[in-house]
Design a protein around this nucleic acid. Structure first.
Length: 208
DNA sequence: CGATTTTGACCTGCGC
DNA sequence: GCGCAGGTCAAAATCG
């Protein structure tokens, strides 16, 4: 695995079950202040359940009016990669692309191809570092992973995301978030090549 | 020919 | 209320 330049964990929904699964998977539990784990910020959303958007395809727009969009838990990964769309073992269908303000790079929108699964993901290239791809997952898969991605443990099946194949890309961090104004950002000092591949209890996070 | 991508239009939420 | 930006739809184009 390539040396990690920077490890980041962004979490403002520490009580979310899925984020725990992810953290457990990467061994990041020790990395998060226990105060955050036990006492979510006041501004956190009240519901932490994983709720997929109802299928909207093939419905007349009139039926969609008045529907309030529910935002489920979201998880984002920052990955050093030359390709925008990272293989994560699930099949995705692109349903949109938009230019992002203050960024020269467009944002792509994908939905899981499984009709019963409402998982979505957004893919955009960091405008601060064009070599970094930010992938944001929303929702939780209701079906097993159709393709076994390399380097991913079986427990990942069912989660919305899987760490990208480390042989190809450098996974440099992730975050879960709710409303942007409630974001709590943690990370490791970007620096030494002696940094561990993943954060440890000895490598205390900092707030920035 | 079915699945997927592209892309312009439309919808929605939010700040002013 | 208006305008902007993000998100989604859906028809057309493209691909395998």
């Amino acid at each position: 695995m390539m040396a990690r330049e920077k490890a980041e964990l962004f979490s403002d929904n520490p009580g979310d079950r899925s984020s725990f699964s992810f953290l457990d998977l990467l061994g990041m539990r020790d990395f998060i202040p226990s105060s955050l784990l036990e006492h979510p910020p006041e501004s956190s959303i009240t519901s932490t359940s994983v709720e997929a958007d109802p299928p909207k395809l093939n419905k007349p727009r009139s039926e969609k009016k008045g529907q309030k969009r529910k935002k489920g838990p979201r998880f984002a990964f920052r990955t050093k990669s030359e390709v925008d769309h990272l293989e994560d073992g699930y099949r995705w269908r692109k349903y949109g692309q938009k230019a992002v303000k203050n960024s020269p790079y467009p944002r792509s929108y994908y939905r899981c191809t499984c009709v019963t699964c409402g998982v979505k993901k957004r893919v955009e290239r960091s405008f601060e570092d064009p070599s970094v791809v930010v992938t944001t997952y929303e929702g939780q898969h209701t079906h097993p992973c159709p393709i076994a991605p390399r380097g991913v443990m079986p427990e990942v099946a069912g989660l919305a995301f899987a760490p990208p194949p480390v042989q190809v890309n450098t996974f440099i961090g992730g975050y879960s978030y709710l409303p942007l104004d409630a974001r709590h950002v943690y990370g490791l000092p970007s620096s030494s090549s002696s940094s561990p591949a993943y954060p440890t209890a000895n490598n205390a996070p900092f707030l920035f």
